[in-house]
Amino acid sequence: MAEPSQCKTMVPIIYQQIIEDVITKVKEEFLEEGIDEHVLQELKQIWQSKLAATNCVPNEPDKQSRAANSSEQVASSEPQQMEPTQSVAIASTSGTASGFAPDTKMVLVDITLPSQNGDQRVLKIKIPSTALQGNQLHNLLAGALNGPVFQAIISLPHTLATSIMQQYINGALLSQPTATSTKNPAQTDGAMSDSEIKTVFPNQKGQNKKIANKLNQVDGHGDSSSDDSTEGSDVDVQDEEMENKGSDEGSDEESLNSDDDDEDFEDHFDTDNIVVCQFEKVYRHRNKWRFQFKDGIMNLNGVDGVFHKASGHTEW
């Protein structure tokens, strides 16, 4: 009956069903909040491309290339490779919101990473057009090149690297717009459509503070499920995050409830193998253990699998 390794062949199908189901069912919520449906479609698209970029889904050989193409939603006519660090705005795409002022025009920029293993990688980053003026971006990237950020992202998968770079740039830009925008407001006006740079400022504090745990906090503040608040990508940010936690929550370690996924995040870093499931039976007799699990999702050796039932045994 069961084909070999159904637990893997089913993965793309199951995942797609779940994605469709989620997207369909939250549609109303989006409309209720007055959020345009294209944002929902964008969510779906980002989700799918991120998923593809993990390469965890078996049997989808063409995914990687697709991921590379669609990892950033911003329309770029065609990515041109530029010399390292110096990047040039290509298709400017207004309307993409960000932590920057709503009217700020965002432009897409290619950053070519110095080749590490021989292959060059181009990260597409969105930046506000204001940052192109003066040496802001240049300085920023020059600083980043020597900093730990590049060291960290250079070995990461493309989308992760892009995402981290994006955050780094956003963070850096948001923490210093005072300089540019107050120094020569007239100039910034020139390049931007009808910008209100001042609107940047109210955001800043929050943004800066968020930088430290931006990647980690995925489901809003104080949400009851701090489930997997840490994703594998924030190499640099991790320390700060820990510090933040320490000061914000005291020494309150969330080790005693089902949200205690701190270890998961370590595991994740180690690309460890994890199975998430439900137990039906757990037997122990002396040092012998037997398990019956169901409804599991696994990531073993970097490949996802799903199972309806799994039974096993071991000794302690």
Partner: peptide, 24 residues
Amino acid sequence: LYRNTTLGHTLQESLDELLRYDQI
């Protein structure tokens, strides 16, 4: 608990991205 899976992680990252751009 299934948020701690590839599918869950990528969803959370995606939402995070939209949050970061104040889209949701």
